[in-house]
Amino acid sequence: MSRGRGWIPWVGLVAVVVAVVVWAVWPSGDQTDAERVRNITHQLRCPDCESLSAGDSQTASARAIRRDVTQRVAEGQSAATIKRAYVDRYGESILLEPERDGIGLVVWGLPLLVLVGGGVGLFFAFRRWRNAAPVHATEADEELVREMRRGDGAS
């Protein structure tokens, strides 16, 4: 493969990936009611479990919530309305996703901050390393290494 044209397969590859991704995220009609129910019930905690969603759990109350949400969706209520109704009845802890305000910003923002901060840190570290003078092995170092290698082989 000649050095000059090595990029051609990569351009093709990127084009295919972009095409598939665009196709996948292209809006394809509205959600069905069943999908809506699934989405909403998975955001509600099953009241008599600790971690499972009402969409997953098999307890009586979780099944009651599934039936209720199915009915509300069939009546045309929006996801926000349904969730609001559940918060009014059970309190905030019924939502499995913390809201993005107040103290909730911490739980959403901190991981992002870590990623961005770490990324920026790495960027500057690489820049510093690139500008720093490289460390070369002296002849004494090389001799040390050769000696150790010999010792290593003998053991």
């Binding site: 939502l95 103290i103 739980v107």
Partner: peptide, 23 residues
Amino acid sequence: LGTVYPLLAEALQDRQLSVGEPY
């Protein structure tokens, strides 16, 4: 964070919250 957040929210703000699968 997701694991201890409900504890923190309860301790600091006295709010009952859950963090689960969607998060």
